[in-house]
Design a binder for these strands. Sequence first.
RNA 1: UGGGGCGUCGCCAAGUGGUAAGGCAGCGGGUUUUGAUCCCGCCAUUCGGAGGUUCGAAUCCUUCCGCCCCAGCCA
Length: 562
Amino acid sequence: MTEPDASPRPNFIRDMVVADAGSGRFGRPVKTRFPPEPNGFLHIGHAKSICLNFGIARDFAGACNLRFDDTNPFTEDVRYVDAIREDVRWLGFEWAEERYASDYFEQLYEFAERLVRKGKAYVDSQSEEEIRQGRGTVTTPGSDSPFRGRGVDENLDLLRRMRDGEFADGAHVLRARIDMAHPNMVMRDPLLMRIRKARHYRRGDAWCLYPLYDYAHGLSDAIEGVTHSLCTLEFKDNNDIYRWLVREVGFERPPEQTEFSRLELDYTVVSKRKLLRLVNEGRVAGWDDPRMPTIAALRRRGVRPEAIRAFAEAVGVSRKPQRTEIGILEHSIRDDLNMEVPRVLCVTKPLKVVLTNYPEGQVEELDAPYFPHDVPREGSRKVPFSREIFIEQDDFMADPPKKFFRLAPGREVRLRYAYFITCNEVIMDEAGNVTELRCTYDPATRGGDAPDGRKVQGTIHWVSAARALDCELRLYDRLFRAPDPEGTGEDDFFANLNPDSLVKLAGAKVEPSVAADPPGTRYQFERTGYFWPDPVDSMPGALVFNRIVTLRDSWAKVAAKR
RNA sequence: UGGGGCGUCGCCAAGUGGUAAGGCAGCGGGUUUUGAUCCCGCCAUUCGGAGGUUCGAAUCCUUCCGCCCCAGCCA
């Protein structure tokens, strides 16, 4: 289990845990749980919940279980449990126990018989449609099922035969006997168990009476001795049935459910159903496509778990709708990487420059530190310098506007760690595109300092044309162009996809030193952004770098205003 | 219009009767061989609105307005 990254901010849930731990309210150590359903990959919203649940267990000397709420055989798969386990561990957390609601089926069945004997549950034999009709609406009360008055013996007999597989799906369901006119819809005799003659990924065909969420969730918490059951606000109404069940089944000092608002991020979606559609309908390459808000995607993109934990801490926990600007996530990522990763030179869109006064065939190895002065890390490497180099296309303008500090005809700039160069000649093709620059360098400025104290306005990055390595760059941008793609209506969901969410730059040139770095090294490509080799597609001879996040770019703002 | 939840700076968020923390973003300035980083400064007389209680309210009361969730044999 990870150490806290910083002292956690207080929030209403931590306040409550402090009070409960102090009063000994539960008579047992603090226990939380993270209860995903294995029907999809975890996303950034789950990360917040993971940090909350595991963080509280850690900070209060308690324990947090990983429990799979696998009560629906139609949608669940081992593949997802494997992915979930990996994601939680990668985030830096270790669970006390790994549990499965599907291991509790027998126990939950026993509880069901107990409820039936108490007259608190009954077998309903209405059709699905009749049940729906009988539930009423939010403004009109429901009506009792004709089977509501069945006696204990008949209910017990039916329930056992349901369990034993005598009936087809939908023939009967088990319901709590509460109040069909209850103002809270959830309390109108909620369904507890239903027959599903389907293969379950863990239980196979051995069991056919599946609990529903409301029935399984709170009782699973209670079985595990959870003290604080934390969930998102859409389950607020379900808290009534949660309490009702743990009390009626007879748990002493049962867990208490507390709700907090779920996280939503601008320009993306955080709904498993919608993410599934993006994957299944081929709008992205998979659950770990770096444009996705899933943990697997963030990991593949190159984000570190430290950044995600910092982000979770930054957004906090409250009950207010938490629609968050992506800027906070990006800041967390940059802030983490800034202090950690080496700087290296990479030209994303190369423009050839010939240094006409540099000796043909000469190559110098120049010293270049890996870290700037304010990052307390050591290290440097040699970068080869030669007569022909590449610079960034965007670092040259034939007719520069005011405030453009880079290269232009007649202008002198510094090549980072190398020399001052002056542009003397611009070569264009028939279409007027700049294809090459002829420049001269000043031998006295080796390393980037002018002995005569001369200043230049700009410093640009470069690579040796002869020695640079070819690479592909994958530039990721927001997946949707609308801040709230879900809020625009279901039909517009895909219409709001950002067509430029992935830009591949095939002809980039990176300095040769990276070939010697360990796999998975993260970099800052100076003046461009943070990158790392794609863990799937990058190969020693065929480098592919993912852009983790851009650098802040105040020039872009200036340029945009013009 | 039944029940529930929520409304504090553009975004997130402290504050729980004693006179509005912090982070992000933004703006201005300084340092800088990354227009990055770093540093400094600015950024809510006001807490959804209106009344009321009080010496004193974002915090208590009344009322109004707005947003979100619930009518799956999903979770």
